[in-house]
Design a protein around this nucleic acid. Structure first.
Length: 266
DNA sequence: CAACCTGTTCGCCA
DNA sequence: ATGGCGAACAGGTT
């Protein structure tokens, strides 16, 4: 599930553990989320540490612990973070569970496309500090979007929006929502956009990010019916703008939903 | 049973 | 050399 706002929602689920000492660590060391990390080493470093900080950046998360221990998490396709009572018995897909005095913090991920990494040091890891600007940063401006469109001039807009090097946090549903609001066909090549259309892509990228965070990141509310989101997975879904049927096809390697009359191909 | 999935990376090919 | 595309990853859901 997780895109920008869902990642932020899950990040907060571990807030109950801030300031708490980790008394025990449970890992499924052989699982794929540990493919780039030694799970037992990670568990060893986390034991006895105190969770201090957490951040989300696009789909990436970073948790900072006492003693210069950092954990990077990516939720992949099916990852979730949650917190519950301390006598919880870890389930089949709870691959990383931190036990505090009264609560536990868990990372569950059935499909294991997510990832965990360990960093030791006083500063944030390099991979974190070198991430591209967040969509709601001032640095993510119209010139930045124009540059992205220029660099991927021959790619479909859908593929460009999904490129985490340029649009960190955008996933499948947000990309479709942005293009629909901007009135741009997902197959349009990046290099074809006029200045006005580039501005529209920029504007709605920020707007959809804000809207998604407003609705999802705190209480995981239901998105309103006037968003494409509410119609895009239903067979026979109707476009809330045109009243005509939505279309689904594979664009940029992903199932894409759009409204042909609202989003003409350039 | 088969198809599909809110993500990323790899190898192949142009 | 770059860049796009399909496959692969692994399990759940429809």
């Amino acid at each position: 599930m997780p895109e920008l706002a869902e990642v932020e929602f899950y990040r907060k689920q571990w807030n109950t553990g801030v300031g708490e000492r980790i008394e025990k660590v449970h890992v499924h060391a052989q699982k794929r989320i540990f493919r780039t990390t030694d799970a037992l080493l990670l568990a060893d470093h986390l034991s006895g540490k105190i969770l201090r900080t957490s951040h989300a950046h696009g789909k990436q998360m970073l948790f900072g612990f006492s003693g210069g221990v950092w954990i990077g998490l990516h939720l992949g396709m099916s990852g979730k973070l949650f917190s519950t009572v301390n006598n919880y018995r870890p389930a089949k897909h709870d691959h990383l569970v931190l036990f505090n005095r009264n609560t536990i913090l868990a990372f569950e991920d059935p499909r294991q496309f997510g990832a965990v990494r360990l960093h030791l040091g006083e500063k944030h890891p390099d991979w974190w500090t070198s991430l591209p600007p967040q969509l709601l940063d001032d640095n993510f401006d119209i010139n930045y979007v124009r540059e992205a469109l220029h660099r991927r001039a021959r790619s479909a807009l859908k593929a460009i929006l999904l490129d985490q090097r340029f649009f960190p946090g955008i996933g499948n549903w947000m990309a479709d929502e942005i293009l629909w609001r901007a009135g741009l066909h997902p197959s349009t090549r990046g290099g074809k956009l006029t200045d006005t259309e580039s501005l529209s892509l920029y504007f709605f990228s920020k707007q959809v990010s804000r809207d998604a965070l407003d609705v999802i990141s705190t209480n995981w509310g239901t998105p309103p019916l006037h968003w494409l989101f509410s119609h895009r997975w239903k067979d026979g879904g109707i476009c809330p703008k045109s009243g005509k049927p939505l279309v689904r096809e594979t664009i940029g390697g992903r199932t894409t939903c759009y409204s042909p009359t609202v989003q003409p191909l350039l």
